[in-house]
Design a binder for these strands. Sequence first.
DNA 1: CGCCAACTTGATGGCTGTCAAGTCAGGTGG
DNA 2: CCACCTGACTTGACAGCCATCAAGTTGGCG
Lengths: 283, 283
Amino acid sequence: MSAINSISASPIEYSTPAAPNTLSLQVDRGVRVNCSTCRAGHHCIAGGLPVNELEKIDEQGFFRRIVRRGEHLYRSGQRFTALYAVRSGFFKTTVLLEEGRMHVTGFHMAGDVIGTDGIGTGVQASEAVALEDSEVCVLTFERLEQMSRVLPTLQRSLHRLLSREIVREQGVMALLGGMSAEARVAAFLLNLSYRLRARLYSGLEFNLRMSREDIGSYLGLKLETVSRTLSRFAEEGLLSVQNKLVRILDLERMHRLAGQTPLAARLPKAGAPATIVPLRRAS
Amino acid sequence: MSAINSISASPIEYSTPAAPNTLSLQVDRGVRVNCSTCRAGHHCIAGGLPVNELEKIDEQGFFRRIVRRGEHLYRSGQRFTALYAVRSGFFKTTVLLEEGRMHVTGFHMAGDVIGTDGIGTGVQASEAVALEDSEVCVLTFERLEQMSRVLPTLQRSLHRLLSREIVREQGVMALLGGMSAEARVAAFLLNLSYRLRARLYSGLEFNLRMSREDIGSYLGLKLETVSRTLSRFAEEGLLSVQNKLVRILDLERMHRLAGQTPLAARLPKAGAPATIVPLRRAS
DNA sequence: CGCCAACTTGATGGCTGTCAAGTCAGGTGG
DNA sequence: CCACCTGACTTGACAGCCATCAAGTTGGCG
C-alpha cells in the first residue's frame, strides 16, 4: 500500500499535543484547545475572526474529543447539545429512514462543522461516524449562541456556516435529481479533490476513506454501479484506482463529465446568472 | 373549475389591508407589517417569541412586498440582503446549474422563510419564483442579526429556522437517493398534505400550484413519469386528479407507498433510533 | 495461512427516460 | 360567443441505464 494517506496523515500541526495520559480514550474532558493556533483555522467557524474576538473565544477554549474509526460522534435521536468541528480525521453523516434504510448525507474533513441538523428540534436528525481515527472540537451550542451575541463576527460566521450547509445540500439535491451515474461519480471525485486541495493535500492523488457502498448511498447509486463507473473511468484513462487509492489523470475531461446533464431541462432564455456546480464547492 | 383553492384562497386574515394606493406594484415601501398580529405567526420566525420580544420587533415592523404570479422574488447571483417570510401565496425555489439546467429545490407557502442560501456568500445561490400572487415580509438580514443579539429567543428562532432547512433538504436527499418514482410522488403529496393541514387547509383536497415539470424536477423525475404515476394512483383508487386538483382518497395506502424502499440498503443491527420520514416534515 | 468483508465483473431485467402523438384547458381576438 | 391557439398534460411505444442477482477476486486482519 502506498504511503499516501492524504486525509489522515495530517500535514497540519495542532497546537495541542496528542492526548497525553487521559483515562478516557473517547473524551478528553481536561483538554481544551485554542482556535487562534488551530491550523484548520480558516476552514472552520473561527476563520476570519478578528484577533480580539479570537482571544475572547480562547479565554475558555473548547473541549476536544477523540473518536476512533467506526465509532459514532453522535447518533440520530440523541439530544443535541453541541456542534462539532472536525480537527482531523474523516466522518460520514447519515440519516436513518423508517424501515431501517440508511442514507449517507455527507463526508466531512478537517474544518468542517457537523451536527447542525440538531439545532432545530434539539435532537440529532442524523448520525456521524468516524471513517478513521479523528479529533473534533466540541462547540457547545449554548455557549456558541452566548458568544455570538457579543461577537458579531462570530455570529456572522455561525450563520454563514449554516447557510453553506444549505447550499451544499442544494448542490447534492441537484446532482441526485438530474445527473447520470458517470456524472455523479465524477462530481463526487472532483468535490473531494477540491476540498483536499483547499486543505493543502494533493487534489490529484488521495485515498477514499469510505466504502463503495457509502459512496453509492451518497450518490444515490448501488455499490456495483460505483465500482463499474470507477473501472470505466480507469479504462478510459481518466484516473487510476487501486483499492482506495485514486489518482486523477485527466482533470479537464473529468470536469466535462461532471457537468454532463443527460436528463437536461434547459432554460428558455439566454443570459445566465450565477450557476451552481453540484458538489464542487463545499464548506 | 372547483371553487377550492386551498392555498391561495386564504382563510388567514392579515393585520394589514391590501396595498392601498402605492405607485409600485412590486414593493410597498411604505407598508410595514407586524408579527404580533400576523396569522401566519407560529409557522414563521416570530413563532413562539415571548410578548415582550414580539413588541420590540413590532416597534419597527417589516416591509411587505408583493410578488405577482410568475415574477421573481429574488434571482440567483443577486446580492443577498434579506430573508423573506411568505405571508400568503406560493413559491418555488430553484438552482441554476452550469449549462443552463435547472433544478427545483423546494416549494414554499405561508410561514416558510426563504432566501437562506444567500447568507453564506452574500449572493443568492437560488431563485424564488411566485407560483401565484404572493406577499412576503422582507426580513432585512442585518437587522435580523442585530435584533437576535439582544433577543435570545429570536436568535434561537433564527438558528432553528436554518437548521430545519438543513433537515428538510436531508430528507429530500434521502428521497432522491433511494426511492422509486411511486414512492417519491406519494411522499411529495403527503408532504404537501401535511403542510396544508398544519395551516388549517384541507389536507385531503388541494390544488397543485406547480406544473408537472416542476414536480418532476423537484423529485428527480421527468414530467411524463409524474403524470403517469398520478394516473396510476388514480386508477388504483388512491386519489383523484383533475388537472391541478388533487383529492387524496386512501391516506394510509399512500403512506405505505411513500415508505416503500425498493433500493433498500438495510442496516446491520436491530434497535433503531429516531428515523427521518422524507419530505413529511417541513418547516 | 485462512477467513471474511470489500470489491470487481458479468448477465439479465425492470424502471424510467425518450420520442411522439394526441387531448385538454384557458386565454385571446375576431 | 365562438374559433383558434398555445402551453400543459396524458398516453403509448420503445430503449437505455442502472439495479439486481450471481460468481469470482482481492486485500486486510487475526
